[in-house]
């Protein structure tokens, strides 16, 4: 294992985040805070409680998930797409590193950023709404698992994309609708039965449900099923990344 290489990639990527701190941290925190202000403080008081939780507090876990999923994908897809675009990827390909070191470096740094963003948003939310955190360790587990798996997904996207448009098309056309319809703003149990069944095919439902359980101990699906889905998605992404590096897909001609 080339630990120096992991350290170098990780440090390099983290330095990039601190150089672009407004875009990396301030922007997602600010945009998510606007949701707290509007749905929590302003109109939240006019919306009925859901499962005994005020609406403003109910949406916090979903909004944190929404932010870290979006950030994870954009951070890690950009981290690997940009070197491909500029050609600097040649150095990583010619270095004595296996895909394991490359993935730990890039995905590790992107996931660290996502966890930082998630925690800042959580801290910010406390200013606007009363939040109860029943299972902090489970909350952290979901935060880390989701960050890592969506960073892996973003990494795959960054390798698959051969233009800037493709890089943004998946987050906007796939992830955003899945997240909005995945129970960020409502409980699945509020939907008509047929839509409840359809929602169960949306993997994001399991993430948000499990994450919300760690706060308020109420969930749309079993927390174990949520953990299993997240780990399953993580393993699937790992297998795809392994395949990409074994075959050199879009990396080595």
């Amino acid at each position: 294992m080339n630990y120096q290489a992991i350290r170098s990639i990780y440090k390099f990527e983290m330095a990039r985040m601190f150089r672009t701190v407004v875009q990396s941290i301030v922007a997602p925190v600010l945009s998510t805070s606007l949701y707290f202000v509007i749905f929590g403080a302003v109109i939240g008081s006019r919306i009925a409680e859901i499962d005994g939780v005020s609406y403003g507090a109910f949406i916090v876990p979903g909004l944190i998930m929404l932010a870290i999923m979006t950030e994870s994908i954009s951070n890690s897809s950009f981290a690997i797409y940009f070197p491909r675009f500029t050609g600097t990827i040649f150095e990583v390909l010619s270095a004595p590193v296996s895909y394991v070191e490359v993935v730990i470096g890039y995905v590790g740094a992107a996931a660290t950023k996502s966890v930082i963003v998630g925690l800042i948003i959580f801290a910010t939310a406390n200013f606007f709404v009363d939040i109860k955190l029943a299972h902090p360790f489970v909350m952290l587990l979901f935060l880390v698992l989701t960050s890592v798996s969506f960073c892996l997904f973003g990494f795959i996207l960054g390798i698959w994309a051969d233009g800037w448009e493709k890089l943004t098309i998946v987050p906007v056309l796939v992830i955003m609708p899945l997240t909005f319809l995945g129970g960020t703003f409502y409980s699945i149990s509020m939907l008509p039965e047929v839509w409840q069944t359809i929602s169960l095919f949306n993997p994001v439902v399991y993430l948000i449900s499990g994450f919300r359980w760690s706060f308020y101990e109420n969930a749309d699906v079993s927390v174990w099923l949520s953990i299993a889905t997240t780990v399953g998605f993580l393993l699937l992404c790992l297998l795809i990344v392994r395949w990409i590096f074994k075959t050199g897909y879009k990396l080595r001609s």
Partner: peptide, 14 residues
């Protein structure tokens, strides 16, 4: 400086 330091680390050198 950073880009050279990065290259050295990538090749496994302290």
């Amino acid at each position: 400086w950073n880009t050279c330091t990065f290259s050295r680390g990538l090749f496994g050198r302290s």
